[in-house]
């Protein structure tokens, strides 16, 4: 028995060291460049993963046409087959269905205009728009826009949405500082504890 008592602390130490290190020792360590190439998820508040580059609304106005955005979203950002990005002044907005409010909106595409404002400026933080366009646009040519082009298109949409001025330059420093108008419309998903009810006090 005595030798067991003596060994016990050492055995526990061994378990702790084992728990902190890898157990199976599989997989390889990615290079910094490899991580950088794949890491397109942008911190919405700090924008820390945003790449170098810059763009303005004037550049974005041209790119909106030349990169094909207008082809799907409409020449003016509405009325195309794809979700509405820009609601023209004078058009009622709100939680209602789109087609009666926005001209020529394709059926099923009203999802883009939920709530007041524009789809693009619904984002609670500006880097969210950058992330969205950079990863998923344009259709069939996703991931082909350069950082400068993404900054410029984001600047164009936010200028049209009256969030920034026409001459403001968007880059990795200025973009995260833009105050978005609908922060109060967006609640972050709560941390749900497994084996518990979804909402305390909710009977269903």
């Amino acid at each position: 028995m005595a030798w067991r008592k003596l060994l016990l602390p050492f055995a526990l130490l061994g378990v702790c060291a084992w728990a902190q290190g890898p157990t199976y020792k599989m997989g390889r360590t990615p290079s910094a460049d490899e991580v950088k190439a794949i890491d397109i998820a942008i911190n919405p508040v700090t924008g820390k993963e945003l790449p170098a580059g810059q763009g303005t609304a004037a550049e974005g106005t041209k790119l909106f046409v030349s990169k094909g955005c207008a082809g799907c979203h409409g020449a003016n950002g509405y009325g195309g087959r794809a979700p509405t990005l820009i609601v023209p002044k004078g058009f009622p907005t709100g939680a209602g269905k789109g087609p009666e409010k926005i001209p020529n909106l394709a059926p099923g595409m009203e999802m883009g205009i939920m709530g007041p404002g524009l789809m693009a400026v619904h984002a609670p933080y500006a880097p969210v728009i950058w992330d969205y366009i950079n990863r998923a646009m344009p259709l069939n040519r996703e991931g082909t826009l350069t950082p400068n082009e993404v900054y410029a298109i984001v600047a164009f949409l936010m200028w049209k949405g009256e969030v920034i001025k026409e001459d403001e330059v968007m880059d990795q420093n200025t973009l995260p500082k833009v105050k978005m108008p609908h922060l109060d419309m967006a609640t972050e998903s709560p941390i749900w504890k497994p084996s518990s009810k979804r909402v305390t006090g909710y009977p269903y």
Binding site: N43, P124, R198, Y202
Partner: peptide, 26 residues
């Protein structure tokens, strides 16, 4: 990461109220 990231999927399903966001998750 160290926060909710407002990703492509999260953004499309955003809610304005915490209670509703919880009921929309699970």
């Amino acid at each position: 990461v160290d926060r909710y990231y407002w990703t492509y999927n999260d953004y499309g399903h955003r809610r304005s109220e915490a209670r509703e966001a919880a009921l929309a998750t699970v």
